[in-house]
Structure formats: structure tokens, C-alpha cells
């Protein structure tokens, strides 16, 4: 009967989809920050990594806060994040067993060319207190990411608590590129890692509506590290694959690739593995 053929057809589709969906290969699962993904760095490195090691690299790009949480729950094998103080605490709490610094760039404060708060050329601490005093729009990631953690730290360094409910303080809860777009729309200031900013400039054909106004100083350094999870906490993670990735990232080839990753002639990250 027609009915039977219909039902059998539905079942056949289901079984084939289920089989297709459950094919497993040797793959390393990584949680990383939006900046490494949004800039295109991982799309550039991953095929090389696979070619050299035979390991497929899969990643989910989330804020550093969520990446650390995914590691805590053993849902990934390895982390590539950028919040050194939080990372050190993470190791002390027994969630990760080792941390390897692989590259860095720096944070900058960007704003409209008109610079309504007049912060160009100031130090970070002064610039932030001027923005706070004048109540000019400042857009924050507000997502507990590495960038957001750093920004809150800088507000404290500038004297006084990090802003929260102030009318001029906008928390987007989104990734860095999104936040840059929102900042441009609002004509405000924000803090970004340089890599993402260069990507953003590239998207606007080298003439972005936001300019770098504040830069320089050790305090603005943005260090990226590979974290290998603690196998006592997470016995099921693929530690060997994670170690292979960590070693490969610190190796000469990857370090050279990172140094060569450029947009508009500018390097987005500086390798610094030891």
C-alpha cells in the first residue's frame, strides 16, 4: 500500500542521516576566543596543522570566559585563550595542567576621528578617566571574554570601580567585530585587540570609521596561550592530541606562519613562544 511505502521512505531517510552524522575521525576539539577566529588566523593555520600532524582541528569560538568554562566541563580537549591572570588561577584551581604562551598582540583604544573626548595620545589610565568624567559613550564587550576582563582591569587601574550601569557605558555581550561595528554606529570609544582592529580596517578597505587613539605600554599587552586541560579533572580528554597542538603552535613553522599573517601589510599577532 502507499502508506507503507511512505513510512519506509521516512525511516530510510532517517537512518541514512543518522549514519552520516556519526562518522568520527581523529579530531582535536578546541575552545578559543573570537579574535583568533574572526581575524581568520585559525582558518589559515588549521590546514597546515592537519597537513603536519594528520589531526583535524575543530574549534568553537566563544569568549575566553566561556572557553574556560567549556574546559572546566571537559567538553573540549584544548584551549587557546588570552586572559593570563584568569589562566593562572585556572591552573591553580586544577582545571589545566600547563600553559604555553604562543603569541601576543596589544590592546588599543579606538574612537571616532573627531575624538569628542579628546583622548588622543593620552595614557590608558588618563584616557579612561577622561571618558568617565565627560561621560562619552564607551562600548564594552560585557561578555567576560579576555578582552572584557582586561578592560575591567584597566578601569580599576584608572582609579575607581569599573563602570556598570552608567548611561554612557554600553555593554554589547557580543564578539569583538560586532562590538566595533556598534561602537562606530554610536560614535563612541572601545577597547579592542589590534588583530581584530586590523581585520576591521581591512573590511572597510583600509579606511575604517574608527581610529586608534590610545596605544602602547606594557599594560596593554595581549598574551595568547595554549592551555592543556588537567587529566585528573578530565580523564576523557585527548591529551596527546592537545600536546601535539601545543607543541606545533610553539614550533618554528607555526611561529613563522603567525608572523607572516598580515592584513593591509600589518601583522595581527606577534609570535613569542619560548
Amino acid at each position: 500500500m502507499i502508506q507503507k511505502r511512505f513510512m519506509v521512505g521516512i525511516l530510510a531517510v532517517l537512518v541514512s542521516v543518522a549514519v552520516a552524522g556519526s562518522v568520527h575521525a581523529k579530531a582535536l576539539m578546541m575552545a578559543t576566543t573570537t579574535s583568533t577566529d574572526n581575524t581568520g588566523l585559525l582558518d589559515y593555520l588549521a590546514p597546515e596543522f592537519t597537513k603536519d600532524t594528520g589531526i583535524e582541528l575543530k574549534w568553537t569560538s566563544v569568549g575566553t570566559g566561556k572557553a574556560l568554562k567549556l574546559g572546566m566541563n571537559c567538553d573540549v580537549d584544548v584551549l587557546l585563550v588570552h586572559a593570563p591572570p584568569a589562566e593562572k588561577r585556572y591552573i591553580k584551581d586544577g582545571y589545566a595542567e600547563s600553559r604555553r604562551e604562543v603569541m601576543f598582540n596589544d590592546f588599543v583604544i579606538v574612537g571616532p576621528a573627531a575624538d569628542p573626548a579628546g583622548v588622543q595620545g593620552l595614557t590608558v589610565a588618563t584616557a579612561l578617566s577622561v571618558i568617565r568624567e565627560r561621560g562619552k559613550v564607551f562600548v564594552s564587550r560585557g561578555d567576560n571574554s579576555g578582552t572584557n576582563k582586561k578592560e575591567r582591569l584597566l578601569w580599576k587601574a584608572a582609579g575607581g570601580p569599573a563602570p556598570e550601569k552608567e548611561a554612557w557605558y554600553v555593554q554589547t555581550g557580543q564578539g569583538m567585530l560586532s562590538t566595533l561595528n556598534i561602537t562606530a554606529e554610536r560614535g563612541g570609544y572601545t577597547m579592542t585587540d589590534r588583530g581584530t582592529y586590523i581585520k576591521y580596517s581591512h573590511q572597510h578597505g583600509g579606511k575604517p570609521p574608527l581610529n586608534v587613539l590610545v596605544e602602547g605600554g606594557v599594560i596593554l599587552k595581549n598574551q595568547y596561550s595554549v592551555l592543556i586541560l588537567n587529566s585528573t579533572n578530565c580523564p576523557a580528554v585527548q591529551k596527546d592530541l592537545a600536546q601535539a597542538f601545543s607543541a606545533w603552535m610553539a614550533g618554528d613553522k607555526a611561529q613563522g606562519l603567525i608572523a607572516d599573517f598580515r592584513l593591509l601589510g600589518m601583522a595581527l599577532f606577534t609570535p613569542n613562544a619560548q
Binding site: 573570537t34 574572526n38 557580543q174 564578539g175 567585530l177 560586532s178 566595533l180 561595528n181 581585520k199 576591521y200 573590511q203
Partner: peptide, 13 residues
Amino acid sequence: ITTAIALETGKGM
């Protein structure tokens, strides 16, 4: 497709 849209939008694309 939808997560790709979210990603592209997040990137400003």
C-alpha cells in the same frame, strides 16, 4: 546556515 549568519553578522559581514 543560521549560526553562519550569526557569525558573519558578528564579523560585520
